[in-house]
Design a protein around this nucleic acid. Structure first.
Lengths: 217, 217, 217, 217
DNA sequence: ACAGTCGGGACACCCCGTTTGT
DNA sequence: ACAAACGGGGTGTCCCGACTGT
């Protein structure tokens, strides 16, 4: 493992990415002008273009940074040794309660919508981000199943998709309404879903009778 | 009753709106150039600006049209005399199955994300569209409660928000993945939620015991 | 002499000319858009183009109207039977004191400067206006000479040019400074010049000795 | 003394100003399109807008340059040690004889008329130019008074205004007529006025009796 | 290696003056 | 007299490359 030397240029590059991430996440790709990036970074165009071949490349890297930041915020305080369902509830709570730390809203949502027509580069990054997020939930659930905390007929992929879909949709509504109500409701429902996946601790024989067909995924 | 005369200008105006609605819904506001609108409509700039004071005004009217179209597609085959929960299930099914008839995806989702930073005019229209949609679901549920089809402790507003949030989020995921899986999962989940709201026909005395904690609000 | 019938169209045409005259005189030819003329007249473009073949033609007619109006304001209260020099002093006084009745300033000055590069049509009209004005002063002076009020070696054309030049220049300065001082000074000097042209009433033999060479024109 | 470095950009900027000054002085602000400026400078819009924030800013700087050029032409060969009245006569002669070196006519006159309605930026520059010019004449006269060349009851400000007004007005007429006659007449008249201000060299006791009423202020 | 200067070429939105059909 | 549309030009800004200097 070679200790990568961090040059001054790398620092500048990273600074550009961080500043650009905010601009792109707020205004979208087409709505973000290089002038705005210049103002935010304090650099001239030449200074920016030394580090990135094009606006698109910068946008892609900025998205990656924005996504990692958002993801870390949502993984905050997650104890990977805790019960799987508690971890997921914490994840949901972080999504709802810490959303203000992601200025401009969820980069995944924004970029998925923004790159819907063209921009395959951004779209690819967004897909990776989605896979990343789903993957974490899936792994958590699988571990829960393995540990006997979660019922073994649960399809982790489906639960993950439901969580992501509901949270992102609710976030969109909450931002449009400027009211956290939608997120609160989504949180309540999702917590209920998760509770329904739990293996009853005291009645090992009565596995699934209480769960209606309606909530099985 | 004065028969409103439809002039040639009105037809042209409407044609512009319809063509523009597609462009805006696909590419977003900033990504939609007047050149693209010219090409789509076959008119010159002068011909377009005769009917709209600005790009923003055209975008607003195009959004209204796009929304009405999308809404009508989702209300297709909805029998307002049918049981409330059946109506809502049909609404959800239309959302999922007829989504291809709304090119570019849901205008509400797209515009909510696109207008997140500025553009208050578009934002206002998106809010109205959301209120429109939520209102329809709420009214249906209230009618169901009045008819005794739906349990009377249900909060219609919350159900409406859950439905909209989940569907929109799942649509975003499905479009990003280019895979209807997310929408199918959301549909299954929401149908289950709706089933949980039903007043049991055969056991009028056992009102709520069968509903698990998982689906309660 | 055929009694010209004044049709409704003629009235409209005249109304357009009058409204346009203000716009053109204030903003200049290039600075006056048809939109501004539409707003001022309450007509649509088609309505304007019905009466004038082009913007240029309208501007030319508007200038003529503006000039006639300005000229009449300056000829106000001029008694053509009064002594020539008194008439001219009155003309100058009107120019100075009644200037506010010509909104936008002197059309001759404005149009002469405005049409300096191209626009030969407007330029021709401005030349006619200048000839008109000079001609009136010249005729007045000639009459004064014939009547023995004005010395017979005066060159009327030169006096006319001096009066027009000085007044127009002073008007420009006064408008730029937003201060009538320049006009007052010009008026004082010109009155002095006119006084120097008078045939002394009491000393018919001493014709020109008191007038310095400096003020002979 | 820091030697201000002249970069390539500064040279380009100056070139733009000089070329633009001609265009603006000939066609006026509204009549000067960026296309014309592009053609004159050989630059594209991007190249021009790199150096100026707007057309208005460029026009303002172009006016300053045009005025300085015109002023220098009129101050040509002015010996500041010569008698005050001789200096002023030379100034007037320069104005008349060297006018062709100021293509498009006097920038002060043109801009004063052109900016009469709006454009406060240009108007402010024109006012400064007027003050500049008046100030030079006033200072010359005051020096003449101090030296005993000019009568001490002369009001320098009034003489300055008269000179400027008359010359500018005559220039307008001369350009309109395409005939230097008006300027010649103005020159003759103003020279006479200046002669009337002179302190008689040979008759120190008879201070003012020889000055006719005609030239008194 | 890195950043800044300068300019290009294209295009943005919008409004221009004009013609045509009625 | 207007409604409708045209064709082109208005100013301004875009993203980017090439050059210049450190």
């Amino acid at each position: 493992m070679t200790a990568a030397k961090v040059t001054k240029g790398d620092q500048t590059r990273q600074r550009i990415i961080e500043q650009a991430a905010h601009i792109f996440n707020k205004r979208g790709y087409a709505g973000s002008s290089l002038s705005a990036l210049m103002e935010a970074t304090g650099l001239r165009k030449g200074g920016i273009y030394r580090h990135f071949a094009s606006k698109e490349e910068l946008a892609a890297e900025a998205f990656d940074f924005a996504w990692e930041t958002a993801r870390d915020i949502r993984l905050h305080d997650l104890d990977s040794t805790a019960p799987a369902l508690d971890q997921l509830k914490q994840l949901i709570a972080n999504f709802v309660d810490r959303r203000a730390r992601v200025p401009g809203g969820c980069p995944l949502l924004n970029t998925a919508v923004d790159s819907d027509d063209g921009n395959p580069m951004l779209r690819g990054r967004a897909r990776k981000a989605l896979a990343d997020w789903k993957g974490r939930i899936v792994r958590t659930l699988k571990k829960g199943i393995a540990r006997g905390e979660v019922q073994d007929d649960v399809v982790p992929e489906s639960i993950a998709i439901l969580i992501v879909s509901t949270l992102e949709g609710a976030l969109m509504i909450s931002r449009l309404d400027d009211d956290p109500q939608a997120l609160r409701i989504a949180q309540g429902y999702l917590n209920g879903v998760l509770d329904g996946l739990r293996v009853p601790a005291t009645e090992p024989t009565r596995r699934r009778s209480a769960r209606g067909k309606s909530t099985s995924l």
